[in-house]
Design a binder for these strands. Structure first.
Lengths: 343, 343
DNA sequence: TTGAAAGCGCTAACAG
DNA sequence: CTGTTAGCGCTTTCAA
């Protein structure tokens, strides 16, 4: 067994509760000397408070759970977001416990993640973009477990990006650069609200500028499915064919996500189209990135804010669980880089 | 307060310890009827065991900590690895608590992560590729806290990939395809053992085949530093220039990592060199991937095994903390895809 | 087959 | 300023 408070108290010749108070920063009622003795004893013995005992007594776990899918399409785990969440929790002397659900568990109405089955966190962050099982959210409400949703467009207890704004922002940026022949490219895929919203943001900006929106959807194989059959991917040829057929009518392309943007960049190079001098490319994304030796012009999400806001909201929710908190909608910013060029 | 065992026991008209035993699967000494009553009561009341109380009493947290850097170069967080770790822990009814250190904390010899300062986990997984501060590992040993290192090449208590083998494997694959003019490309960067080992694996395979290893190191800007100045990246031009100058002497390139491979693919397209018909590209990596609409031929790590092995080792370590466990070295496999072609 | 008693390590409420 | 008493929710031990 590890060093306990009792041993520290004995060593410092004081009662256990006194040692507890002192080590928790409430020692100002004790003498300078006693404080010193206790601190010293704790240090020499290598005392580490047992968080389980503390939680058992105080009724607070000082822990937050993060629930997500193991399917990248349902719950993309942004490392930056995760870091921001952890940093913010760390400030509050709380920790993060992770839990993921497999697709099978996800659809099984009887399955409950450990974090819901057992009492172990003060609140939950739920990073499910869509398809969050209703029986689970019902259960969470029923438990009155404080929870904040991330990336889900709900009216309350939720933090999510303004995807319409992001879509419009990217288009406006291309328009400001003087582009008129701007196409919008997306691959077939899941139906998260970001998909329609970004496209509508683009459409809105084009109409505002008196231009006709040009939108194309191409078939793809989801990049994470490459495991299944690496040889069968023909995404590139779809993009290349489209680009070849339309190159005269295009000076710029806005893509739904980095996935389309990367393929497009590669296809353009294959077609001998130089980016950015002959073709500008901009995408909506989470963070700025440089996948191919060229920095992508992109809208980026304030992921750090997002994590902080989510944690702040959760803290409020934990303090007053019954009160619903108005959803926070976050705006992206446009980060110009090396794939766009004025016309 | 949530539903407690006491309430369940009252409802089922039995003592608290009896209810505890029954709900923990040790109810075979009780009558069928009693078992049923307790289970029923727990269900209708929505009982969730308080893990803090259980841990306080049993002395086991049933929790594992994951310590990493927030710097992607020191501790790349593979989502697949993380998932495998979580899944394995989930099987054992344990959970994962995350902790990251910032670079500043990392270099501050006085800083201790919460997980070490406080007693809250039964063991730790440490995902630091290099530069793990000595005062921290000393501290961990001193605490006798069971710990397993991931990605660190230590003799004991460690799981890491055989990078030499991976480097050799990729080269051998190209050789089998009939390539002779095989160059090895890497960008300047940190000095993890994977860097030299992979290169030496390549070198070894080339020498075995009676060929001269051709190795080039090009300058780069770390892809994660794009935030700092997105416009200043000239990685692509370095690769393009190198490729142009050497295209006649190259039929295949092996790259240190996907980062080089992506840039190379893009550079080749820019030069009008078709992959794979005119240039084969293979890389060492963690997982197979398709970043640009073309599936990359790559060595891949058994990340799922890696997570499982790490957890298994940690469980052993927790059971017998004093015993050192021989390090487990994992071999990659070669996954051919769309970027390689027989000559 | 069941219950009572004890205690994990800690914090909170009081009394002195 | 300091100690005593009590108890968080649970598991373990022992007696019946």
């Amino acid at each position: 067994m590890a060093v306990t408070l009792k041993e520290v108290a004995q060593q410092a010749q004081i009662s256990v509760p006194a040692a507890s108070l002192i080590l928790n920063g409430k020692g100002d009622i004790y003498s300078k000397d006693t404080n010193e003795r206790v601190q010293q004893a704790a240090r020499t013995l290598g005392y580490r408070p047992n968080l389980a005992a503390r939680a058992a007594r105080s009724g607070k776990f000082n822990a937050v759970g993060l629930l997500m899918s193991d399917h990248p399409a349902y719950s993309r785990l942004s490392v930056k977001l995760l870091q921001s969440v952890m940093a913010k929790l760390s400030d509050k002397e709380m920790h993060l416990t992770m839990s993921q659900m497999t697709d099978a568990q996800f659809t099984d109405s009887k399955f409950l993640p450990r974090m819901l089955r057992q009492h172990m966190v003060d609140g939950m962050l739920i990073n499910y973009t869509h398809h969050f099982p209703e029986h689970l959210s019902d259960f969470i409400h029923q438990l009155k477990l404080p929870a904040i949703w991330i990336n889900a467009r709900l009216d309350h207890d939720s933090v999510y990006p303004d995807e319409f704004h992001a879509g419009r922002l990217a288009a406006q940026y291309l328009l400001e650069l003087g582009h008129r022949k701007i196409h919008y490219l997306e691959f077939e895929g899941s139906v998260h609200y970001s998909r329609t919203d970004r496209r509508e943001g683009y459409t809105h900006a084009m109409m505002e500028a008196g231009l006709t929106p040009m939108h194309v959807t191409l078939p793809t194989q989801f990049p994470d499915q490459v495991d299944l059959d690496p040889m069968s991917c023909d995404t590139l040829s779809h993009v290349t064919n489209w680009l070849k057929a339309n190159r005269d009518q295009i000076t710029a392309v806005q893509t739904h996500s980095p996935w389309e943007a990367r393929v497009l960049l590669y296809a353009a190079a294959k077609c001998g189209l130089d980016v950015p001098s002959e073709l500008s490319v901009v995408t909506n994304g989470n963070e700025s990135f440089n996948f191919m030796g060229i920095a992508m012009s992109s809208t980026v999400l304030p992921l750090t804010d997002m994590g902080q806001v989510a944690v702040e909201m959760l803290m409020k929710k934990i303090a007053t669980p019954q009160k619903r908190i108005r959803a926070k909608v976050l705006e992206s910013t446009m980060v110009p880089a090396q794939t766009t060029h004025a016309i």
